[in-house]
Design a protein around this nucleic acid. Sequence first.
DNA 1: TAGATTGTTAATCGATTAACAATC
DNA 2: TAGATTGTTAATCGATTAACAATC
Lengths: 213, 213
Amino acid sequence: MQDKGISQAVIGRLPRYLRYLGDLKENGVERVSSQELSKLMSVTASQIRQDFNNFGGFGQQGYGYNVDYLYTEISKILGLDRQYNFVIIGAGNLGRALGNYLNFERRGFIFKGIFDKDPELEGREVRGVKIKNISELESFLKANNIDIAVLTIPKTGAVGLVDVLVSNGIRAIWNFAHVDLDVPEGVQVENVHLSDSLMKLSYNISRYEGSKN
Amino acid sequence: MQDKGISQAVIGRLPRYLRYLGDLKENGVERVSSQELSKLMSVTASQIRQDFNNFGGFGQQGYGYNVDYLYTEISKILGLDRQYNFVIIGAGNLGRALGNYLNFERRGFIFKGIFDKDPELEGREVRGVKIKNISELESFLKANNIDIAVLTIPKTGAVGLVDVLVSNGIRAIWNFAHVDLDVPEGVQVENVHLSDSLMKLSYNISRYEGSKN
DNA sequence: TAGATTGTTAATCGATTAACAATC
DNA sequence: TAGATTGTTAATCGATTAACAATC
C-alpha cells in the first residue's frame, strides 16, 4: 500500500473499481477474475491487473481476486478506513445540498460546520448544523480538528480564503469555486468545476451534430 | 473547427483556456503569446500551441494570439455559441441547487423544467419553474425541445430513465447519479461523480500523511 | 496434475515536450 | 529588416495493451 508515485490516472480509476466491487459484494459474489471485471466495466483486463499491482499483489493465480478482500484494500488505499472532519464554506444552494448529502458521512466524511458571509443565513440549520458567520471561521478551525474545507462560494472570495484555511490546519480543499487555487506544498486540492463539465458536454453534442451533416 | 477525433484530454483543457482568456479580456488585454499564457496557467507553451492547432491556426507569428478572437473561437468549438434547453430530474437538494445556478443560463443553458417522483414537492418553484411529477416527464419532453437531461436522482432510478429520455429526443445526459449509464450511440453522457472526487481527495491526504512518516 | 489466472515484462500506442523552420 | 512567435515536425515520455512465465 505504499506509494512510489502512482499516477493520478490510476487513482482516478480506483473509486470506480470500488463501486463495482461493492455491487458484487452486495450480490454475494465471492471472487472475480480480471477478465470478468473487465467485461463488467468495459476496460481491459490488463489495465485492471496493472492498476491493482501498483499497490501489491491482491490476487491469486488460477483463482482471481477475493471481492471482499479487494474491496477492503482499495478502501484503505483511498484512505476510507478513517474519518475526516469537514466544513462547508458558502451556505448557498450548493453548499447546503452538499451538507445534506448523507452518503459522504457513510464514507467517513463528517460534516462539522457551515459558514456564510450573509448574516441573513445565520442560525439556520443544515442537517442539524447551524450556519455560522464567516467571521467565526478562524476560531472554529482553531478549536476543532478540521481536515477538509469545501468551498462553495464565488471565485472572488475563494482565493483570499486559502491563507486562513491553511494557516489553521486545513489539509485539503474540495473546491467548487470556479478558480484555480494556489496552495502550499502538502495541501491537497480537488476541483469540481461544474461549468467546465457542462462545456465538455456541449462540445460533445455539437461535435456529434456536426459529424452527422 | 472541424473534428477529426480530437482527444478528450484536449477537450478537457479548453474550458480552462476559456476561463483564463475571459479573465484577460476583462482586464482589457488584447493579445497574449503562448509563453505568457503558459506562465499564467502553469502548463507548457508547447501544449498550448498544440492544443489550439488541433482546430486551426488561431495565432499569428511574431504577434501571438488575439485574446478576443481566441475566446470567441474556443467558445464556438465548445458549442457555446448556441442555446441548449435542459430539464432537471430529481428535485432534491442538488437538483434544486443546479436549477438555481444562474451561470449556466449565461452560457446558453436554459432551465426549462424540473421533475421529481415525490408528490410533496409538486408545485414548489425553483427559480420560477414549477416542480412537476415525474409522470409528466414524457409528455413534457415530447412537447418541448429539450436537449439535455440533468440526472440528480439516486442510481436505482437513473438506469431505468435512460430509455424514456433517449426515445424522447434527449441528446445528452449530465449524470450526477452514481452509476454508469448505458446509452445508444450519439447520446452524450458526462458524469459528475462527487463521491469519486471526494475519494481522490482523501487518497491524496492519506498519501501525503503517509509520505511524511 | 491440468487448467486457470495472476503478476510482470515487453510492445504499442498516444500524449506531451522540444526544437526549429516558416512567417508575420 | 530584425525580432518575435507561431505552426508543425521530431523526440521523449508515460500510459495502455499484449504476451507469457510463474504459480495457485
